[in-house]
Write a protein that binds this DNA or RNA. Structure first.
Lengths: 169, 169
DNA sequence: GTAGCGTAGTTGAGCGTTGAACTATTCCGC
DNA sequence: GCGGAATAGTTCAACGCTCAACTACGCTAC
């Protein structure tokens, strides 16, 4: 919240307030999302020393053939600003889990490379992460609810970030 | 991520990895949740100067008969730690939107009180907030999807925070 | 009434995020 | 090739959050 408020007024007319049912749906979604993200992050952090954000970076790198990725691409994949990713990679570098390497094709670019130590750290954290997701999410839901969750997520994603949703399936 | 890692091993046995369908459901939910929360927060912050977290505090206070609430209760309602809320209320106090008042019944307690200026700020922000929620969420969803969203949220909430889900409806 | 414990809330240090300013390199039109 | 615009990434300062330490008050039992 560093911004000066610049006047960007709403379209005129009475706001379309939420009715009671919409309020309940919105609040249920909001609270459950915040609580779930928070709990998974704390659980992972306390058990492995790796926050969920850092875990995502390690996963992204590990899934690439050479275990390396351009900084910008990595930032996009991790829903991170470039600044944030740059800081995060610096800290992962201090731990010896990632190293930077100048990009051969583009002198402006940097590659983030997952080290063996980083891969080992990821291998240690992955079971903790997946158990958390099962315990807090999948174990609570019926197959129908899981299908609904996916449908909801993909519907929203088509608007929020069309690139990210695979059109094929 | 300030913690030293204390060994809290998983239950033994092979981790229950996610299959492809579960991966897709999980990633769709995760990305959509993160993007939606982020977008709503940025939109509100840039248009009104009030972050989503601060907005929730103002809303909680405004919904109470006397527009005041105990700090702990407010923290619970806003999914906030006491420390975080204490800092946040201090900053809202600097803006003149909230003031602190010692609690008559319990000398240890403090009441956070919404000022007229705070209420006016909330009135200005509320239309921006509701338009954001409509634009990014409800306008994209069918009635069935909204119902599914509520069901999903309430199911998760029953585990994550049973107090918060109303058993009646 | 006072010792000990529990609860309410605040404070401070350290870390992470943000947004803007900055450097370095590449791309494009001429 | 050369000047200007665009792109890639980093850095800095300000702010917010976390965790642990701390103050202050209330509760209970002796």
């Amino acid at each position: 919240m560093t911004s000066t408020v610049s006047p960007q007024p709403l379209p005129p007319g009475e706001p379309r307030w939420l009715d009671v049912e919409e309020q309940k749906a919105w609040r249920a979604w909001l609270y459950s999302a915040q609580l779930l993200l928070d709990r998974l992050d704390r659980d992972l952090t306390h058990r492995t020393g790796i926050s969920h954000a850092y875990y995502e970076i390690l996963v992204a790198l590990s899934e690439t053939p050479e275990r390396m990725m351009r900084m910008s691409e990595l930032a996009d994949r991790c829903l991170s600003s470039r600044s944030r990713l740059s800081h995060a990679v610096s800290r992962l570098e201090e731990r010896g889990w990632v190293r930077r390497q100048v990009c051969a094709e583009d002198g402006r670019g940097q590659l983030a490379v997952l080290t063996e130590e980083g891969f080992a750290a990821l291998e240690g954290a992955a079971p903790v992460h997946v158990e958390g997701v099962r315990r807090e999410l999948f174990d609570r839901l019926s197959p129908e609810q899981v299908a609904g969750m996916r449908d909801l997520g993909e519907t929203l994603l088509r608007h929020l970030d069309p690139q990210r949703v695979h059109p094929s399936d």
